[in-house]
Amino acid sequence: MKRRLITYMALPVVWCLVSGYVTIGSLFLGLIFGMIVVEPFSKLYRLDEVVHPTGDWLAKIPKKIKYFYVLIKEIIKANIVVAKIVLSPTINIKPGIIAVPIRAKTNIGITGIANTITLTPGTLTVDISDDQSILYVHSIDATNPQGIRDSIRDDLEKYVLEAFE
């Protein structure tokens, strides 16, 4: 079974969950919207590859669930830190751009870690090196660049690598 077919079968379900309506029309609309949104990214995510429902594909489902759990936890923690910065009477921060070496080698792994960083409040992936080994990350408080690098490597990238590479 090709990844494209699996993706196209999942998108109407996601659309129904988001919209709150489970009808034939809603499923059809989710399929149409999904096809329009996913098609430009089909080469990046290798949607024409054949996926066998055994082996690596099934084994990564628990790792992907763990990744999403860690992502939600990190987003909540970062929201609290950003809220403390914003609500403090004096803002004592030093924003900056930090070079973060990454271990991800595939396009989906690199995209996953870059998007994970961007989803976390207070950080934003702004660029990637030509050899795709370093992400440049803007941080709202770059007073401890090594701590940010370690946090990305240990708290985020580890789970992206397990789930998507």
Rank of each mutant, 00 (worst) to 15 (best):
T23V: 06
A163L: 09
I140T: 05
S26N: 05
M9Q: 01
F33T: 04
P12D: 02
P40Q: 03
Y21L: 11
I97E: 04
H138G: 10
T23P: 02
Q146T: 11
L161V: 07
G109W: 02
P101K: 07
D141S: 06
A114R: 03
R4M: 14
I102Y: 07
E162N: 14
S88Q: 14
L17C: 14
T123Y: 12
L44S: 14
A10I: 15
I113W: 01
T120D: 02
A10P: 07
V37E: 00
V86R: 00
I61D: 03
F164L: 13
A10K: 01
Y21A: 14
I76R: 13
V126I: 14
I65L: 15
A83V: 00
D56K: 15
N115R: 15
K158L: 10
I75Q: 05
I36W: 13
K43I: 09
D155I: 01
N144Q: 03
P53Q: 05
D130E: 15
G25C: 01
S42N: 07
I110H: 05
V51S: 08
K66N: 10
M1L: 10
D127I: 06
T106Y: 03
A83W: 08
V13Y: 01
I148N: 04
I97A: 07
S19C: 01
L47R: 10
S19M: 00
S88H: 14
D127V: 02
V137S: 02
P40D: 03
Q146E: 15
T143I: 08
L31A: 02
A114T: 07
C16V: 00
E157C: 12
K60N: 06
V70Q: 10
V22A: 06
L29K: 12
L17N: 07
I110W: 13
V13T: 11
F68T: 04
R153W: 04
P89E: 10
K43V: 14
L87M: 12
A104N: 08
G96V: 10
V81C: 02
T111D: 01
P101S: 14
